[in-house]
Amino acid sequence: MKRRTLLTASVSVAATAVPSVSTAKGKSDKLFRQAPMKKRAEVWMQQVKPAFAIAYFLGEADEKKDTRPPFGNDKDASGKPQETLPGTQVLLLESGIDGSDQFLDVANLVARVRQRARVPLEKLLTLVEAVVQPEITAPIAECYSPHHIVICYDKIGSPCGAVEICLTCNDRRMYPGGEILHAYDGCDIAKVARVLAEVGLPLSGERNLSVDDYAKEVAEQIRYIEKRREEWRLEEQKK
């Protein structure tokens, strides 16, 4: 099995376990990049054309079962080839921030998936709206250890799009159109969480967290940031 799967490749896959595929050059759609904000989710759906979507809840990699053989220049301090655990990300960015070439780390997905659920396309649209055209944005921290990913598939089961989410730091990545996200402070992460909860996925593997409690936590974060911004603004006025 190849370690990485280019999302833009042609492949026959199962909906719940994506096997290896051949790679191909990924291309961002100019129509999506140039679309008005209120139309971006709709344009994204038109570009991806998902036949169905699966949301995955990811656990931690098992050191005994999921350790990988040395890859490339992976070496320890003594210079010997070093085995590694899968990283925390399934959607990998390979060519800067423009999002033109992104890969699924298939081995990581298979090793870490703990639960999965079908996402109706109308709920997928709601989730994408929360990501690319948010009315409320939550502040982003720096951990980015995503435990959720929604993968879109075409009619033959090939992955054609993805949205990866970290509910801890409120950040997200997506394909196609990853470059669009860099224009935002964040997304409507509470709305994203509500969609994940509605399809039956847990929000956390460490605690029993309801979507309402999570939304309250996010609202508190937003109020804190707004308060700090007002304090900074007043401090600047005094200078």
Rank of each mutant, 00 (worst) to 15 (best):
P120C: 10
R114M: 03
I136C: 11
L124E: 04
L121N: 00
E129N: 14
V132A: 02
A130R: 03
V110K: 11
R114K: 07
P139I: 00
T137K: 11
R112H: 05
E142W: 14
A111L: 00
G99V: 02
L91M: 01
A111C: 05
V90I: 15
V113T: 15
R114T: 06
L92Q: 15
G99S: 01
V132Y: 08
P86D: 07
A141N: 13
D101I: 00
Q115T: 09
T126C: 09
Q89F: 07
L127M: 11
G99Y: 06
L93R: 13
G96M: 04
V106T: 15
L93Q: 12
R114S: 03
L121D: 00
L92T: 12
I136D: 09
E122K: 14
V90M: 11
I136K: 13
D105H: 01
I136P: 00
L109F: 08
D98Q: 11
V113Y: 09
C143L: 13
T137N: 09
T88G: 11
A117V: 04
E94A: 14
I97R: 13
D105P: 06
E129T: 13
R114V: 02
D98P: 09
V113I: 13
L92N: 11
N108W: 08
R118K: 12
T88P: 07
R116M: 14
A130G: 05
V90G: 06
L109H: 03
V128G: 00
L109P: 04
R114Y: 02
Y144T: 01
E94S: 14
V119C: 03
P86A: 02
S100E: 02
V106P: 04
E122W: 07
L121I: 02
R114G: 08
V119S: 00
L109Q: 04
V110C: 07
Q115N: 06
E94T: 09
N108P: 07
E135P: 05
K123D: 02
T137G: 10
P134Q: 08
V113N: 12
P120S: 11
R112D: 01
F103P: 01
L124Q: 02
A117Y: 05
T126F: 10
A130N: 05
G96S: 01
L91G: 00
L121Q: 00
R114P: 00
D101Y: 09
R112M: 05
R118Q: 12
D98R: 12
R118S: 15
L92K: 14
A117M: 05
Y144K: 03
R118E: 13
P134W: 10
L93F: 14
L124T: 04
A130C: 04
R116N: 13
G96L: 08
P120L: 10
K123A: 01
A117E: 08
S95L: 00
L93W: 15
D98G: 09
P86K: 03
L121M: 04
L124Y: 07
C143V: 15
F103C: 06
I140L: 07
I140T: 06
S100D: 02
E129R: 15
L121C: 02
L92E: 11
I97D: 13
I140Y: 08
Q115R: 12
A117C: 05
L124N: 01
K123V: 01
E135M: 09
Q89K: 15
V128W: 01
Q133E: 13
P120E: 11
R114E: 06
A117K: 06
S100K: 15
I140P: 04
L104R: 09
T88N: 12
A141T: 10
V132C: 07
V110N: 10
V132T: 00
N108A: 08
D98S: 14
A111Q: 04
T88I: 13
T137F: 06
I136V: 15
